[in-house]
Design a protein around this nucleic acid. Structure first.
Lengths: 334, 334
DNA sequence: GTGATCGTTGCACACGTGTGCAAATCCTGT
DNA sequence: ACAGGATTTGCACACGTGTGCAACGATCAC
């Protein structure tokens, strides 16, 4: 097991100085075509690759490492987002570290990781906000982009859904098909984005002259939580003709919970979710929802990160991502 | 924007040599309690963190970086696996790079990434096998673990489902409830694991005295592919009482495709999938399947990787992960 | 008190790379 | 042929860390 070849090895074989090798692999450096050719040949023969770790040691060159702090990867929308973010980062020349974090985990590991490897930036897209992480980033001057999270610190950029628009659109969808008696189903203790969306929804329900008849709760914002919420709803004996769920995953569970009791959507009530995950379009559910474009979300994150890496002193910005209603069977009157 | 503090800064503040600082943060080094205390205080005041990039430059210490090459993150099982792998790696002190790769992408980026950052190992879990990646890893001596992929090279470890067992169990599940006329639905050009499982399935179908009536194809191994396969099946006018699908995602699509035409499972035919993704348990589908434990899969990968990092010269090994039948409504006779 | 032993400390080097600076080389115009 | 400029090259240093080696001081046994 021999160690990988270094620039010095290549220089020796090519009969030039080590500087020449370095310059050959540095964009915009001054090397003659002849030397470059000799170097390339020797490098190819030896299988030489520039060691980026050593390169980034030289403080002039930034490290190109970016931390990707993620939770709830089993949520379909999250998985897609992470995939797109990683792809985008790689395409832009960055190297994404994947740092899973879930409630209860120590934040120390994540923080150590970011600072020990002096990443040049971080994107945080976990639901429950580990404020410590943001604080430490701010303290050490690591550019930070938060996705769908409450503001933390002075200089962090934030990308989030236009929750106000989303909440209002959900209410309008129900209003448009003539709903009058409305239910909201979600988690009791909501995450930041979902909470804001719910508030906008409830507000618009009132504005449009519909009546909020009740709330149904589940303990998690996923399929299982939706089933619980359906049971909660049924146990209350409410009469309702339209509902909005915290997100699509929850809505699918809600539908399954209603079905288990012999009901069906939209016969029992019209239903609007949020996110437009792939599963929402499956014929078994055919869920009306509000599309949050993962491409747009991702692009905004990458732009914001690049901007903050270029000018770390900039004060934080908030970028809102729009939503589009996607009408499907769950709001189709039969 | 000031640069992060270095060991020299800490040494100056604490009034000791830089070596003392280094030794304070190195396990098993010889430092007196008094010096250690002074160093820790100074380090804390300055907010010093050891720079792991510089540390790993010293060839004695391995880099602790691991590449995670992944495709099809939108597949639920894949997302869960990646999450568990990343968690496990972080827990074991490694740092996972997330490298998305899909068919059509250049392998150059991935290979460059691994070699430029001289990762100490890599786990590849993309479906279509980029043999080049494995070849380059072998050439440069990067320990490699392949998940559910065809063998490549001499010294790569492989972790894969016991496809033979899985295929036979699928057939037996159908046989147990009295099926006689069997259908297989999947992709025409199968991935390695799915192909092997299909072969074992077809073999066992014959052994048990059932009849293979036909095949149905879709163009992708996901929900959309399953719908296509259902249409393909219906257009052939076959009579069938049991079927096995390439994987769960595909099976859910297959069910939806049959439903769209007014049929239902298991009334039209019994159905067995494979993987046991979360969605398979959803009441709308209630799919009988073969559980592939992601925890066991992940653990095996991490162990294999650790083993190969410790002794890179070892010849490749194949670790088989068992499967367990999970009986649900799709094979329940009404 | 003295010699031996052992834990602690600092110096200096190594790791692989980028780059400022000055020397050297090449090219061009007359 | 020669001056002057433009381009290329090599030297030496910097980046932040770990560690072998020798020196140093303390402790202990006699």
């Amino acid at each position: 097991m021999k160690r990988p070849p270094t620039a010095a090895d290549v220089a020796a074989l090519a009969g030039v100085s080590r500087s020449a090798v370095s310059r050959t692999f540095t964009d915009g450096a001054s090397v003659s075509g002849e030397t470059r050719a000799k170097v390339m040949e020797a490098a190819d023969k030896l299988g030489y690759r520039v060691n980026h770790l050593a390169r980034s040691l030289n403080s002039a060159q930034p490290s190109k490492l970016v931390a990707l702090v993620v939770s709830d990867m089993d949520h379909s929308f999250r998985a897609v987002t992470v995939d797109l973010l990683a792809r985008g980062l790689v395409a832009d020349g960055y190297r994404p570290f994947l740092l899973p974090w879930s409630e209860g985990d120590s934040t120390k590991t994540v923080i150590d990781m970011m600072l020990n490897y002096n990443v040049s930036g971080a994107i945080v897209t976990s639901d429950t906000p580990p404020a410590e992480i943001a604080d430490e980033c701010a303290r050490y001057g690591v550019p930070l982009v938060l996705v769908n999270k409450a503001p933390v610190g002075e200089r962090t950029a934030r990308v989030m859904q236009d929750t106000d628009l989303a909440g209002r659109l959900a209410a309008q969808e129900l209003h448009d098909i003539g709903c009058k008696r409305i239910l909201y189903a979600g988690q009791r203790r909501n995450s930041f984005t979902i909470g804001a969306r719910r508030d906008a929804f409830l507000d618009e329900v009132e504005t449009l002259g519909m009546e909020l008849v009740g709330m149904a709760y589940g303990t998690a914002q996923n399929h299982a939580g939706g089933i619980e919420a359906a049971e909660d709803f049924l146990s209350q004996g409410l009469e309702v003709d339209g509902a909005h769920c915290a997100n699509d995953f929850f809505a699918l569970g809600f539908i399954d919970g209603l079905r288990r009791a012999g009901h069906s959507v939209p016969d029992l009530m019209a239903l609007v979710g949020c996110d437009d995950i792939n599963e929402a379009a499956w014929p078994a559910y055919d869920l009306t929802t509000l599309r949050q474009d993962p491409q747009a979300l991702t692009r905004a994150c990458l732009d914001a990160l690049a901007e903050r890496i270029a000018a770390p002193e900039t004060t934080g910005r908030l970028i809102r991502i729009g939503v589009t209603p996607v009408r499907r069977g769950s709001t189709r009157r039969t």
